[in-house]
């Protein structure tokens, strides 16, 4: 493996690892967003049919109950997947299966967020980068970091993330309040300015989705997306953390950046693939 390919794979491994690690923290320390799926009459009826009674389901007060216990236990598979992201290789089929299974975990948590968001499609779509990151890594390990399937999957993940985000930012679906709030707090601007900035950012989200499909524009598009993805991921701790908070609020916000690692690592990966150095290395590898 040449040096550039090593860095390309490192991008994908790190992006996947951080995404799983961020979600592992959510499951371990905070409340993962499954309530909307697990707390319904039908789910309780299913639990009853499995012999789980009310107190066992919700907890007695002295313990966490079935729902919380099992949500908390999902921390372990996320942690394992975070490790697998760094260790998995093409020949270790068990690890590769685990990695693919990790994608299922991310699809499940993204679906829960989608349902919680009253089934707004962009909520599911914008998680495409996170959901597909393990698959991109899986493709890279199986087919190679420059294989068409790997790049195509990365492009789909890229487009889903930025198109989903763009749908919210331009207001095709109601813009989440946190978008305005973070923009206002981080940049110190009033609502009208924040609204204008988000509109521009949303349009650029769509522009880069198209841009990466056009050879002439794909590098600047990937470069912009890399920077923008990093800044939007970083916006949570920047807006929320404060020395006056316990641990400066790090336990509340840092993982929000960490689990969004695919939002900037995927564009970085594509940027390197399409960079002159990347092409040169690719050519020399082929030669």
């Amino acid at each position: 493996m040449n040096r550039v390919d090593f860095y390309l794979l490192l991008c994908l491994r790190l992006g996947t690892c951080l995404c799983f690690a961020g979600w592992a923290w959510v499951h371990y320390y905070w409340e993962a967003p499954y309530g909307v799926l697990l707390w319904s009459d039908s789910t309780f009826e299913f639990a009853q049919s499995m012999g789980i009674d009310w107190d066992a389901y919700v907890g007695t007060g002295a313990d966490d109950g079935w729902v919380q216990t099992w949500i908390g236990r999902l921390f372990w598979p996320y942690l394992v997947c975070a490790v697998l992201s760094l260790t998995a290789g093409r020949k270790s089929w068990l690890q590769m299966v685990g990695l693919a299974g990790g994608c299922g975990l991310l699809v499940f948590v993204s679906y829960a967020k989608y349902v919680a968001a009253q089934r707004q499609p962009p909520m599911f779509i914008e998680h495409g980068g996170q959901m597909l990151m393990p698959i991109v890594l899986w493709c890279a390990l199986v087919f190679g970091v420059r294989h068409g399937a790997t790049i195509a999957t990365a492009c789909v993940a890229f487009v889903m993330t930025f198109a989903g985000h763009g749908c919210y930012a331009v207001g095709l679906w109601p813009t989440p309040a946190t978008f305005f709030a973070m923009t206002s707090v981080v940049l110190g601007v009033e609502y009208e300015t924040a609204k204008s900035l988000l509109l521009v950012a949303g349009i650029l989200d769509f522009v880069v989705c198209v841009g990466i499909l056009i050879p002439l524009f794909r590098r600047p598009s990937a470069a912009y997306a890399c920077v923008w993805g990093f800044l939007t991921a970083l916006a949570r701790p920047v807006a929320g953390m404060s020395p006056s908070l316990i641990y400066w609020g790090a336990d509340q916000y840092i993982h929000e950046t960490v689990l969004r690692a695919p939002h900037f690592m995927l564009p970085l990966y594509l940027l390197i693939v399409w960079s002159p150095l990347g092409k040169q290395q690719s050519q020399s590898s082929t030669d």
């Binding site: 499609p121 779509i125 195509a152 789909v156 989705c209």
Partner: peptide, 13 residues
């Protein structure tokens, strides 16, 4: 292929 996949995602959206 990339074009087709991306167009499919956008049209699905």
């Amino acid at each position: 292929k990339i074009w087709l996949v991306c167009c499919f995602v956008l049209s699905a959206l």
